[in-house]
Amino acid sequence: MAKCPTNRSPGCPVEGALDVIGGKWKGVVMFHLLDGTKRFNMLRRLMSGVTQRMLTRQLRELEADGLVHREVYAEVPPRVEYSLTDKGETLRDIILALKAWGETHVPYYALSKQELPETESA
Results as ranks from 00 to 15, higher is better:
residue 52 Q to P: 00
residue 104 T to V: 03
residue 7 N to K: 12
residue 76 V to G: 10
residue 95 I to D: 04
residue 55 L to T: 01
residue 46 L to C: 06
residue 27 G to Q: 06
residue 45 R to V: 08
residue 1 M to D: 08
residue 59 L to Y: 00
residue 13 P to L: 10
residue 75 E to A: 15
residue 43 L to K: 09
residue 94 I to K: 03
residue 89 E to W: 11
residue 106 V to L: 11
residue 7 N to W: 04
residue 59 L to D: 01
residue 112 S to M: 09
residue 100 A to F: 05
residue 52 Q to K: 14
residue 51 T to P: 10
residue 105 H to W: 06
residue 71 E to P: 00
residue 20 V to G: 02
residue 31 F to Y: 13
residue 29 V to Q: 01
residue 66 G to H: 11
residue 53 R to W: 01
residue 89 E to H: 14
residue 116 L to I: 13
residue 4 C to Y: 00
residue 57 R to T: 10
residue 85 T to G: 04
residue 44 R to N: 07
residue 104 T to P: 01
residue 112 S to Y: 08
residue 74 A to I: 07
residue 103 E to M: 09
residue 12 C to Q: 11
residue 26 K to N: 07
residue 66 G to L: 09
residue 28 V to P: 00
residue 112 S to N: 13
residue 52 Q to I: 02
residue 54 M to V: 10
residue 118 E to G: 03
residue 88 G to N: 05
residue 117 P to F: 11
residue 64 A to K: 11
residue 9 S to H: 15
residue 88 G to C: 12
residue 31 F to P: 00
residue 1 M to F: 08
residue 77 P to R: 15
residue 100 A to Y: 02
residue 21 I to P: 06
residue 76 V to C: 08
residue 83 S to Q: 07
residue 6 T to I: 07
residue 54 M to I: 01
residue 80 V to Q: 10
residue 40 F to Y: 14
residue 96 L to V: 01
residue 93 D to C: 02
residue 93 D to A: 13
residue 101 W to G: 06
residue 84 L to T: 02
residue 15 E to R: 14
residue 79 R to C: 07
residue 112 S to Q: 12
residue 80 V to K: 12
residue 36 G to P: 01
residue 73 Y to S: 11
residue 16 G to W: 05
residue 121 S to L: 10
residue 104 T to Q: 13
residue 64 A to Q: 13
residue 25 W to L: 07
residue 8 R to H: 15
residue 27 G to L: 13
residue 101 W to S: 09
residue 24 K to Q: 15
residue 52 Q to E: 14
residue 21 I to F: 02
residue 12 C to W: 04
residue 49 G to P: 03
residue 103 E to C: 07
residue 17 A to K: 06
residue 42 M to C: 07
residue 110 A to I: 04
residue 36 G to E: 02
residue 14 V to P: 01
residue 67 L to P: 12
residue 28 V to A: 14
residue 64 A to W: 03
residue 10 P to I: 10
residue 82 Y to I: 03
residue 105 H to G: 00
residue 1 M to T: 07
residue 120 E to V: 11
residue 74 A to V: 08
residue 107 P to E: 06
residue 110 A to F: 00
residue 122 A to H: 06
residue 117 P to D: 14
residue 8 R to W: 03
residue 36 G to F: 04
residue 117 P to N: 08
residue 73 Y to P: 00
residue 93 D to V: 06
residue 112 S to P: 09
